[in-house]
Amino acid sequence: MQLTFHGHACVSLALPGGGGTLVIDPGTFSDTATALTSAAAVLVTHDHFDHVDVPAVAELLTSHPDVRVWASGPAAAALREGGAQSNQVQEVAAGQVLDIAGARVTVGGGDHALIHPDVPRAVNVTYLIEVDGQSLYHPGDSYEAPARLPEDGLDVLLVPVSGPWMRLAEAIDFARSVPAGAVVPIHDALLSEIGHTLTGRWLDTARLGGEYTYSRLTVGEALAV
């Protein structure tokens, strides 16, 4: 498995047989143009702009009629309203299992993490992706664990590390509670370099324990698993 980080919450995975990439959450805080360059399919966890750049994804679908997007209900509606063809956008819900270009994708989740009691919670789905016997989990804007784990645990757990809805303690507990070989921080656009350093110190297993490798990626950097 080769994972590439495109900034904030956006990552892509190389699909089997040179079939392009599976892109997750190409939002406006990410290098969306690069992320979508070789996209064969796109997954969107929810409709917030930092997770789906509607004009960019709609343009991709217009120029590449073979590309498909799977998204939460509100995100799918936003893409259709933004000009995407209905037959290229599929709404997903927790409990579905998808076969996308050789990748097995299990949809979970349901609710965005609570920002404030007075702020309505968005629909947020999660994705467990299994490719060639390896696995990755993207929780969107939540710390909801996968309903099912591969027998040997995850290969990569993506952990949100910054946002108006989170506490660092929740990120630490999430990283320690979901078995994974590697923890990769995401949802980090609001962090300065100082913030990244402090976050890395707390999430690194030397500080609070755990059995994973903490692997911060810079924009455009790939991790081979």
Rank of each mutant, 00 (worst) to 15 (best):
M1L: 02
Q2K: 14
Q2P: 01
F5Y: 15
F5G: 03
H6E: 01
H6D: 03
H8Y: 14
H8C: 08
A9T: 15
C10F: 05
L13D: 00
L15T: 04
L15F: 05
P16C: 02
G19E: 11
L22W: 01
L22E: 00
D25R: 06
P26Y: 06
G27D: 05
T28C: 13
S30D: 01
D31M: 02
D31K: 10
T32Y: 03
T37F: 00
T37G: 00
A39V: 01
A41P: 02
L43Q: 03
V44F: 00
V44G: 01
H46D: 15
H46G: 15
D47N: 15
D50R: 12
D50K: 08
H51Q: 15
V52I: 15
V57H: 07
P65M: 09
V67N: 03
V69N: 07
W70L: 08
S72M: 09
P74W: 10
A75W: 10
A77G: 10
E81L: 14
G82L: 10
G83H: 07
A84F: 11
Q85S: 15
Q88G: 11
V89G: 13
E91M: 13
V92D: 09
A93M: 13
A94D: 08
Q96E: 14
D99W: 06
D99I: 06
A101F: 05
A101N: 13
G102W: 02
V105M: 07
V105I: 11
G108N: 10
G109N: 08
G109W: 09
H112W: 10
L114V: 10
H116Y: 06
D118Q: 14
D118L: 13
V119F: 11
V119Y: 12
P120E: 11
R121M: 12
N124H: 08
Y127V: 03
I129T: 13
E130F: 01
D132G: 04
S135Y: 01
S135W: 06
S135F: 06
L136H: 02
Y137M: 03
P139K: 06
G140A: 06
Y143D: 01
E144G: 08
A147P: 01
R148M: 10
L149F: 02
P150E: 02
P160Y: 02
V161R: 03
P164M: 04
W165G: 00
E170S: 13
A171I: 00
I172Q: 08
D173G: 05
D173S: 09
A175C: 03
S177F: 04
S177Y: 06
P179I: 12
A180V: 04
G181L: 09
A182M: 13
I186Q: 03
I186T: 13
A189P: 02
L191G: 04
E193V: 10
I194C: 10
G195V: 04
G195H: 07
H196P: 00
H196R: 14
T197D: 14
L198Y: 15
L198R: 15
L198T: 13
W202I: 13
W202E: 14
D204T: 00
R207V: 00
L208A: 10
G210W: 09
Y212S: 07
T213S: 14
T213F: 08
Y214Q: 04
R216T: 11
L217W: 05
T218W: 15
V219W: 05
V219D: 11
G220S: 04
E221W: 09
A222L: 04
L223T: 02
